[in-house]
Structures are given as structure tokens and as C-alpha cells.
Design a protein around this nucleic acid. Structure first.
Length: 255
DNA sequence: ATGGCCTGCAACGCAGGA
């Protein structure tokens, strides 16, 4: 199974790129974040025409997640259990024997903001949920935009980012708490090039200057890590015309 | 030293992203 995640920063704008990418990469599952579309406006016909089924949970203007899959998805969940939240940030479904959980973690804005408190509360609720999902399903893949750079290797300039949102100690602790649910960061199962990032600011020519962060991740439960053959970042879409500011991440899982 | 870009909504600027 090839499973991927991509924050597209508006599926309306990025639909042609998503269609091209599906055709080229042929993932079995693609988790999307920041679709920014109400469900009535989801481009279902266009996605189906590429040979994929789609689950989606969206809202106007902000947030929004989707899971595209070649085969049918079952047992769909669109909320963190017992955590009421109007923001559409989670989507879970079982595909080909694997529990796939798509996450769009809150950005947090700055470490002193109310949004930062929301981010940490939200992550605590997700950690408890993931632990239950791992126990219930065994084979679990959690893919998405985590808005956390787990350690210094994931930051182009650790000194400049020290203590800042996306890199702060409480966020990194929250990321470790997600792993403590019984998950591993698939990217770090392998030797990786230095300067591997998944997000680059639109400003300051950040992509060309390699000023990035690795904040998009695919976590795998222990039942899946042994089958994981690779985890890679596809920077090609980030180099295209009118790109998303995030690059897709892909894992290969042996059958 | 500062802010620098992109998207959506709906207005001719703002909120939000990261």
C-alpha cells in the first residue's frame, strides 16, 4: 500500500495539481488537509474521474479534510470522540485492513495566543483517541499536517525558531504524547537527507533558500512499522506554478 | 529593522495560515 498526505491549501485552487499527482503517483490512499470547501462544493466528480473514491468533511473558508482511496472506506468518523469541535480537522476510515486517520492539527498562531491553548487541548484529546484506535484496530496510520516540527533536524534554523510556535517545547511534548499512543514517525525509520522539510513560507523566497520545516507526518502503529519500506517527501509540486506551501509525504507499506 | 505571500470572503481590507 502507498499512503500519502498533502496539505493542499485550497482544493479548489489545487484540484488540477491533485488530479495530476494522483495519476503520476498512484497512491492507494491520499489524505488531504485545508480543502477549504463545504461538502456540497467538494469536487467529487473530478476525483471519481481519476479512479478514486472520496470521503470529506469540510467547511467554508477554513480547515477541511478528505481521504481519497482506490478501494472502499468503512467505519467513517468525522469527530474526535467526546471532544466537541466546530472545526473540521479529523477524518478516520478503514481502508484495505488499515485504519487511516487524517489530521489537520491547529496552527496555534503564537505560543501566547488562545489558539495555542486550543492546539494543546486538541492534541491531548487526539492522543487519547489515537491510543484507543491503536488498541481497537492494530494497523493504524495517522497522516496529516501536524503543525509541529518534532526536533531540530526538522527546522532550517533551529536558533531562529527556538521556542516559537511549531517548534516550542509544549508542542514537541504533545507530539511525543501522540507517539506514546503506540505510533512511530515513519520518516525517522530511515536514513534521511539533512534539510528534509515539508513546508516553506510563501514569502521571502523560502523554498529556493531551503528555509523550511518538517511539519507534515505519517505515524504508523507498531503493527505497520515492520512493513514500512520507505517514507519520502515529494518536493516536485512545491516547485510548480501556483503551489501549495506544503509538499506531499508518502509511505510504502509491504502487503 | 521590517516585512515580505497566498486564499477566501466580500469588500476595495481583513482573518488566517505557519
Amino acid at each position: 500500500m502507498r499512503l500519502a498526505t498533502w496539505n493542499v491549501n485550497s482544493l479548489k485552487v489545487r484540484l488540477p495539481q491533485v488530479v495530476d499527482w494522483l495519476a503520476a503517483q498512484q497512491p492507494d490512499v491520499l489524505c488531504l488537509q485545508e480543502t477549504k470547501l463545504e461538502d456540497e462544493r467538494f469536487p467529487l466528480d473530478e476525483i471519481r474521474a481519476t479512479g478514486y473514491q472520496a470521503l470529506y468533511s469540510g467547511q467554508k473558508t477554513y480547515n477541511g479534510v478528505a481521504i481519497l482511496s482506490k478501494t472502499a472506506a468503512a467505519d467513517v468518523v468525522v469527530e474526535i470522540p467526546d471532544y466537541p469541535d466546530a472545526q473540521k480537522r479529523v477524518l478516520a476510515a478503514s481502508v484495505a485492513g488499515t485504519r487511516v486517520i487524517c489530521l489537520y492539527v491547529p496552527n496555534g498562531q503564537s505560543v501566547h495566543s488562545d489558539k495555542f491553548r486550543y492546539k494543546l487541548d486538541w492534541l491531548a484529546a487526539v492522543a487519547a483517541w489515537l491510543a484507543r484506535e491503536v488498541t481497537a484496530h492494530g494497523k493504524v496510520a495517522v497522516a496529516g499536517d501536524f503543525n509541529i516540527a518534532p526536533d531540530e533536524r526538522d527546522v532550517h534554523d533551529p536558533k531562529a525558531w527556538e521556542g516559537q510556535v511549531l517548534c516550542s517545547a509544549p508542542e514537541r511534548k504533545a507530539f511525543q504524547a501522540l507517539l506514546a499512543a503506540g505510533l512511530k514517525d515513519s520518516f525517522r525509520l530511515f536514513e534521511q537527507p539533512a534539510g528534509s522539510f515539508t513546508w516553506w513560507d510563501y514569502r521571502m523566497n523560502a523554498y529556493k533558500r531551503k528555509m523550511g520545516l518538517r511539519i507534515d507526518h505519517i505515524l504508523l502503529s507498531n503493527a505497520l512499522t515492520g512493513a514500512c519500506r520507505s517514507c519520502t517527501i515529494d518536493v516536485n509540486p512545491r516547485q510548480s506554478e501556483r503551489p501549495s506551501d506544503h509538499a506531499p509525504v508518502i509511505v510504502e507499506l509491504a502487503d
